Amino acid sequence: MKKHNDMGRVTTQGARATWGAIALIGSLLAGCGSAPVGEGESDRPRVVTTTTVIAHWTQELGGDAIELVPLMDPGVDPHIYEPVPADTVAIESADLIFYNGYDLEPGLIRIIEATGIDATVVPVAESVSPLDMEQEGQRVPDPHVWGDVSHAVTMVETMRDQLIALLPEERDRIQQNATDYITQLRSLDAWVTEQVATIPAHQRQLVTTHDAFQYYARAYGLEVPGTLIGISTEEQPSAQTVQRLVDTIRTLNVPAIFAETTLNPQLITTVAQEAGVPLADQELYSDSLGAQGSRGDTYITMIEANTEAIVVNLGGQFTPFSP
């Protein structure tokens, strides 16, 4: 029987895999595309995460006090991610599970809800009131809440509280990590506002492949006149949708449009060619952080890289972020 509290926390009772079985199955499933379960027994609590953004925040807060098991690699699109058997093994072995929620990662959410586990399960994004968007004729919550950095603060605070509940003996350490990181996020939030304000008002038009930037746009003073597909990358644009977007871009004299790192750029490249506008050289990070060493390998550098691309290509004046 599942028990829900007002934060969307879920606990279930069920059989847990032994560490010996976990190690064995993990070795058998190596190379299957999911994060390894790990070798040997650890006395640290195991925290399983879905998206790369949430994994990064978990590491920032918990450090080496936890055993972090991220299920997705950088560059993976959570909308269409297909879980592998190792993901179920990791979920069953977890003490705490952080996932985005609002149906961002439907494949993993189905496993989390169906698997018999004894863990605290937290849909982190659901600590933020969502925007309602249209998808296939229905109104659904937009899951891309981290685009507004003030929402990131709320999500990090939720994660901080859950980690402290898991590790009360590490309260001071986790609290300090959170305080330091949230200070950086608040500075980042103000900086993005300043950067976008340098774009001429009539050029603050953000056109991307899929509708992942509504929170960013609304927080920082941009308009999203159209996208190639909606909030889920499972959608396929029709020829009419492509033509409407081309017409909108021409009508508004949009200076440039943007591809995204997790999506094939072919169709948005075609839109740019048909509309006669540049496709920005820098792809935007939407649903995933970049690979280690890339411009967007942390949440802060992801937001900075996206902001630079948007500001420069829409005619603003960019100044690098200094925390």
Results as ranks from 00 to 15, higher is better:
I111D: 00
D180K: 01
D87V: 10
L185K: 00
F258T: 03
D247K: 13
G14T: 08
T301R: 14
D64V: 10
D132F: 13
G38P: 11
S322D: 14
N100C: 11
A114L: 11
Q273L: 09
Y81V: 00
S238F: 02
G31E: 03
M72F: 10
L24K: 14
T193C: 06
L96W: 10
A35L: 08
G20H: 09
V224G: 03
L96K: 07
E126C: 03
G316K: 08
H210S: 02
I268P: 01
M302G: 00
H79V: 03
V69Y: 07
H151A: 10
I109W: 00
G276Q: 08
Q214R: 15
R295I: 05
I199C: 12
P78T: 04
T269D: 12
T183P: 00
T50Y: 01
T158F: 05
T298C: 03
D161Q: 12
P70T: 07
Q214A: 14
H202K: 15
A190G: 15
D64W: 09
Y81W: 11
A65C: 11
H151D: 09
G226D: 02
N100H: 12
P225Q: 09
A65F: 11
P143S: 04
E105T: 13
A219R: 14
A275S: 13
L104C: 04
S127D: 05
G147C: 04
Y215T: 02
L185F: 03
T154P: 06
P130T: 10
R139H: 11
A119C: 04
I199W: 11
D64I: 10
T183A: 15
T193D: 13
G20R: 15
Y99C: 03
I91Y: 08
M133K: 15
Q162W: 04
S238R: 03
P74V: 06
W19L: 09
I229T: 15
A190C: 10
D281H: 13
E67K: 13
S232P: 07
H4R: 13
Q184W: 02
T208E: 01
R160S: 01
A114R: 15
L71Y: 01
Q135E: 12
T241H: 12
T261L: 04
I97F: 11
N253S: 14
Y285V: 07
A197C: 04
L61K: 02
D132S: 14
A212W: 06
E134A: 08
D281W: 06
I300K: 00
A212K: 06
V271E: 00
G293M: 05
T248K: 14
Y299R: 01
P265Q: 09
V76E: 10
T301D: 07
Q184F: 02
L166T: 09
T179I: 09
Y220A: 00
I22Y: 02
L108R: 05
A15V: 09
T301I: 04
R204D: 00
S127A: 13
P168T: 07
A309R: 01
T208A: 06
G101A: 05
D43P: 10
N264W: 08
G38E: 05
Y181G: 02
S187F: 05
